[in-house]
């Protein structure tokens, strides 16, 4: 139905989208995971209560979470240029993606870790576990299934954000959809990109759910 060049372009777009999504997710977890852990640990009821710190961190997270992604994309352009040297292409898109996704991931991680039974934490404390041991040996492993579900949500959300970066020539499937579907009225190409995006989301989501269920020993 399309020329081979179109397929090649779509294939490239697919790879670019996956690249942006996966790299951004990994980097965003690098920031968001510690933030989420910090939120739980320093909570009033946490194992290392620090109410002021908790309040400030929560505020920062909320602040970033409330900025719409398209606006954030433009707001951080100077930061992007400073880090990557350019504001277009996949690498440039990773910067705003990470900045937008990290606080979102922090909240996902926070809610997963809060599901861990207080009694189990208390048991670990009664054995003389330090806060760090509780984080690495109790909180994270016990919340694993929920963290994996969270990761599936995070990765699919980041994918859809990455498609929005098409508006600023961010590369990937979103970029193609906007260039052909919006600027040139080639809706068939746009439709194919949408189908591809839907498929990736399905696959990632399903894989995440299965992985979570497989590793869950509570059933």
């Amino acid at each position: 139905m399309f020329d081979p060049e179109v397929w090649i372009m779509l294939g490239r777009g697919l790879l670019e989208s996956l690249y942006m999504t996966l790299v951004s997710t990994a980097l965003a977890y690098l920031l968001g995971l510690p933030m989420g852990i910090a939120m739980v640990v320093t909570d009033k009821e946490g194992i290392y209560p620090r109410e002021r710190f908790n309040w400030i961190l929560g505020l920062i997270i909320n602040l970033f979470r409330s900025i719409p992604f398209l606006i954030l994309l433009i707001m951080v352009l100077p930061v992007t240029r400073a880090i990557v040297g350019t504001t277009i292409g996949t690498n440039a898109t990773i910067v705003p993606l990470v900045i937008a996704a990290a606080p979102f991931i922090a909240r996902l991680v926070e809610s997963s870790l809060k599901e861990v039974d207080k009694g189990v934490i208390e048991a670990a404390q009664s054995m003389g576990a330090s806060s760090m041991q509780i984080i690495t040996k109790v909180l994270l492993p016990e919340a694993r299934p929920s963290l994996i579900v969270g990761a599936a949500i995070a990765v699919t959300t980041i994918l859809s954000y990455s498609a929005m970066a098409g508006f600023v020539a961010g590369g990937g499937l979103g970029d193609i959809a906007i260039r052909y579907g919006y600027h040139r009225y080639q809706t068939d190409i746009m439709l194919v990109t949408v189908v591809l995006l839907v498929l990736i989301v399905q696959v990632l989501q399903e894989a995440g759910m299965r992985l979570a269920r497989l590793g869950d020993k509570r059933k």
Partner: peptide, 23 residues
């Protein structure tokens, strides 16, 4: 020192409080 001494004080609970993801 407190962590250390807690190792000489075992504790069990009403709800058992086992790690569900460990055998």
């Amino acid at each position: 020192e407190l962590y250390k001494i807690r190792q000489s004080i075992g504790m069990i609970f009403q709800q058992f409080n086992l790690l569900m993801q460990r055998n």
